[in-house]
């Protein structure tokens, strides 16, 4: 599992960074999205990988590191996802506005 997760993060980051440096706005936005997926997985990984361990306490039950996983990275991921969504949406709007003004999808507004 560790290998799959780390390879996934690596591939996503590499493709994201490559796309970020491309000259088309659409490529940039996909690059940013891939980058944010990689970051979200990375945050998740920083809470250590556990299988079949809930992050939330049951009513009445005692919690501990043996039975539960760290809830904080999961909460952080949620926040990061929400913020990432909002930013992507905003970027899309700006992208369309730029396309409308300049008639091209080049990031500098001219070929």
């Amino acid at each position: 599992m560790e290998l799959v997760l780390s390879a996934g993060i690596g591939v996503l980051t590499a493709s994201g960074v490559w796309l970020l440096f491309r000259p088309r706005t659409y490529q940039v936005i996909i690059g940013l999205s891939l980058l944010s997926y990689a970051v979200n997985l990375f945050i998740f990984g920083m809470g250590r990988l556990r299988v079949n361990a809930p992050p939330v306490l049951e009513p009445g039950g005692a919690g501990g590191l043996l039975t539960h996983t760290d809830p904080i990275p999961q909460a952080l991921v949620l926040t990061a996802i929400v913020i990432g969504f909002a930013m992507t949406a905003l970027f899309l709007v700006v992208l369309l506005a730029s396309r409308g003004f300049t008639g091209t999808d080049h990031v500098d507004g001219r070929e």
């Binding site: 990375f42 809470g47 952080l76 913020i83 930013m87 970027f91 730029s98 990031v107």
Partner: peptide, 25 residues
Amino acid sequence: KAGLHYIAVNLAASSLFLIGVSLIY
């Protein structure tokens, strides 16, 4: 045009921010 560049730069920087925060955690 300036906004497009500004947003792209800052979104990339925010990713670095998150990676840094989670590494510290």
